[in-house]
Computed example of a mutant assay.
Amino acid sequence: MNSAKILLLLPYPLHTAPSQRFRIEAYFPLMHQHGIVIKAQPFFNEKAWSRLYKPGYFISKSLDVGKGFIKRLWAVIFLVHKYDFVLVHREASPIGPPIFEWIVTKIWRKKLVFDFDDAIWIPAISEQNKIANSIKCFWKTKWICKWAYKVAAGNNYLANYASQFNANVTILPTSVDTQNRYRTLVNQSIFKPAIGWTGSHSTMKYLDLVIPFLRQLEKEKEFDFYVISNKEPKFELQSLKFIKWTEETEIEDLSKINIGLMPLEADRWSEGKCGFKIIQYLALGIPAVASPVGVNAKIIENNQNGYLCQNENEWYQSISLLLDDRYLRKEMGRKGREKIIREYSIHVNADLFLELFK
């Protein structure tokens, strides 16, 4: 292990996307500590990533993808042979068939470790990128699983899918650093509490499920509603306070929240979600209120560290109760943090990650 060399074929620039930051980048110090040599190769650079989900820019986006393909091709031809393992997070290329994974495993015969944390085999069409989605080749997830030396899946649902094609599947929860980063506990004793949600623009649509309850609560109670995201929300609320997400202020911004929300639709795509919003909330001592979909129901112990809500009345009652009782928020937050330390800390899951490369 001390002499292992790993090439990381990553989709996003470093320090940008949550899945990559917390599933891969968070383990960089651990790998360095164990003498593992790593080289990160993102497909997109920061400029390309910043405009990827903006409407328009068709020519620029096409050039960005072309540059990414050239960079990826150069990596698999001239770099792969120097490494013992190749780690692919989600996919080596955002569109097209799994040609790069095929070269790594069939031409170079290298050990490919495949990590994913969403149901990426299920087509998910966005308005901004309908053309790109038509050539994404969602079917390739199956083949990457088949060719992989080992697969790391974010939850049971994903692991069950991967296990159809590969016998070496590890459930590796998305985890946080509870010792060095997620240490600040939220002050639950303040007079005016704050409800909050964090996530990318692609998951902001789920807030439509709770906006009606929040509008009703605005008529009855005082609170702020924070949305921490890469894009400003389009809906209107009197209590709304938007915070532009940055890695540097992430913990400080989350610490403004007293109650964290994670609504989801009950569908196959949501079953693949790894509950990372909840993990972030609980790690900071923030009780969570969420839909009982997929792994959410495993992370939240109902009435202990948060609430699982199946209908409008449960959402309204749960949020209302937490707004009114700061002692309840504090106790639930304490229990939530204890659970994250036990089960969703990178220090607890370090051995699972290192085992992928043995």
Rank of each mutant, 00 (worst) to 15 (best):
I299C: 06
I135F: 14
N296P: 14
L237F: 06
A283T: 11
A26M: 10
F116M: 05
G306M: 07
I131H: 04
S62K: 05
F165C: 03
Q164N: 08
F276G: 01
I299F: 07
Y27K: 01
F138Q: 11
C137D: 15
L217D: 00
L8W: 10
M262P: 02
T174G: 11
D224H: 09
V113W: 00
L30P: 06
S126T: 15
Y27M: 08
V176G: 02
S202H: 07
A152C: 06
S3N: 11
S200H: 12
K192L: 15
N258I: 02
R90W: 09
W74E: 11
I99A: 00
L356F: 10
R51Q: 14
R51E: 15
P193I: 03
K219C: 10
R268C: 12
L308G: 04
H34D: 12
G272D: 01
F138S: 13
N45C: 11
F213Y: 04
S320N: 09
S62N: 02
L63R: 07
W147V: 00
A159F: 04
F69E: 05
P94V: 13
I24D: 10
K244C: 13
L214D: 04
I120W: 06
W74L: 11
S202N: 13
P287Y: 04
F225A: 05
D253K: 05
I103F: 09
F58L: 11
A290R: 05
F58D: 08
S175E: 04
W139S: 06
H32Q: 14
D64A: 11
K67C: 10
H81T: 13
K106N: 11
P13F: 08
V348P: 08
S320Y: 09
N180G: 13
D351I: 15
Q33A: 10
S239C: 06
H32G: 14
V37F: 13
C137K: 13
A124V: 15
T246Y: 07
N160D: 12
E271R: 05
K39T: 12
V289E: 03
C309K: 04
K339M: 08
I278G: 04
Y149H: 06
Q33F: 11
D324P: 03
N349S: 04
A194R: 09
L8T: 09
Y206L: 07
L328C: 02
L7E: 02
R326A: 08
L9M: 03
A152S: 05
S60D: 12
V104C: 09
E220N: 07
F242D: 02
K150L: 00
Y161M: 07
L207K: 01
N349M: 05
S134K: 13
K54H: 15
K231Y: 08
F223E: 07
L10S: 12
